[in-house]
């Protein structure tokens, strides 16, 4: 079973890699056939990503939300799910260029750099045996997935903005990027969704911590960094309503916010120590 899980993971990993290259190819060639293939292969990879999660659930006998490996696979799954929905809903294929390489790098980290000890199925330590585990981690994965899409859109916004004053050939893809207003609006939608989900993550974490650690808040590095992320996105939402911060600065906060998301996961796990050391 573990073997099949591995095959599903590798198929997803390779598919996301090919899709990333195709999205780059689309950006250069402006050929819609290329983007169609890119989306198709992304969907194909996502099916195997789903399969890897299902097999993991069967192998471990519980939801795959416990260690760093499982979290990353589920995180990538959520990003691609949101991305596919986004592409279907808004018919904007160019964002794939900013999303799929991130997805691929996250998968590459799991495939190449992650030690086997973090991938192994270990029994749950006592503190993790709680009904709050699945609520807490599943909403975290969805929140981070939504933030990832807003990050891709924010990068597109900044690229488009920096090219606004220059002469761009009419047949280049940069010319066909959606208007700044549209990018700003859709990234705002995803930040709103992510912010709401992140709030649930923090509240459910507090309820659980009150039960397991004896305090709803202990300034554990992971708690603190999720609060920092929450504050940055909260500032971003307010910035959009403040005259001088609307547009460019608000978009910059969306980029910084996603950097905080990644640090909350990687930085806190590998650089800082605390109560959350198991995930």
């Amino acid at each position: 079973m573990g073997n099949y899980e591995n095959i599903a993971f590798i198929t997803a990993f390779v598919s996301y890699g090919i899709a990333s290259f195709l999205y780059v190819g689309y950006f250069i060639s402006v050929n819609t056939a290329v983007s169609r293939w890119a989306a198709l292969i992304t969907g194909w990879g996502w099916m195997f990503n789903t399969l890897a999660l299902i097999l993991r659930t069967i192998n471990a006998g519980r939801l795959p939300l416990v260690n760093g490996y499982e979290f990353l696979i589920a995180f990538v799954w959520a990003i691609v799910l949101f991305y596919l929905w986004f592409e279907y809903r808004y018919k904007i294929q160019t964002v794939g260029l900013f999303i799929m390489p991130i997805v691929w790098l996250l998968m590459a980290y799991v495939a190449v750099a992650m030690p086997d000890s973090q991938k192994a199925i270990a029994p749950l330590m006592p503190a993790l045996k709680s009904n709050w585990l699945s609520v807490h981690v599943a909403t975290a994965i969805l929140a981070y997935g939504a933030f990832a899409i807003s990050f891709g859109l924010a990068l597109m916004y900044l690229l488009k903005e920096s090219w606004a004053d220059k002469n761009i050939k009419v047949d280049s893809l940069l010319y066909h990027l959606p208007p700044l207003e549209v990018l700003d609006e859709i990234s705002y939608q995803f930040i709103t969704l992510g912010f709401f989900l992140l709030s649930i993550v923090i509240v459910s974490g507090a309820i659980w911590a009150e039960q397991a650690w004896g305090s709803y808040w202990s300034w554990d590095p992971k708690e603190t960094w999720s609060l920092i992320t929450w504050m940055i996105y909260g500032a971003c939402l307010h910035a959009r309503q403040t005259y001088e911060w609307r547009g460019h600065r608000a978009i910059l906060l969306a980029v910084i916010g996603f950097a905080a998301v990644l640090f909350t996961f990687f930085g806190v796990n590998y650089l800082l120590s605390g109560l959350h050391s198991y995930a």
Binding site: W219, I232, A235, T242, W245, V268
Partner: peptide, 19 residues
Amino acid sequence: MKMGLYLVLTIAAASIVGT
């Protein structure tokens, strides 16, 4: 709201120092 914005960003920066 602008004051709130600056305050939240300052508190976020201070919290980073604390970690």
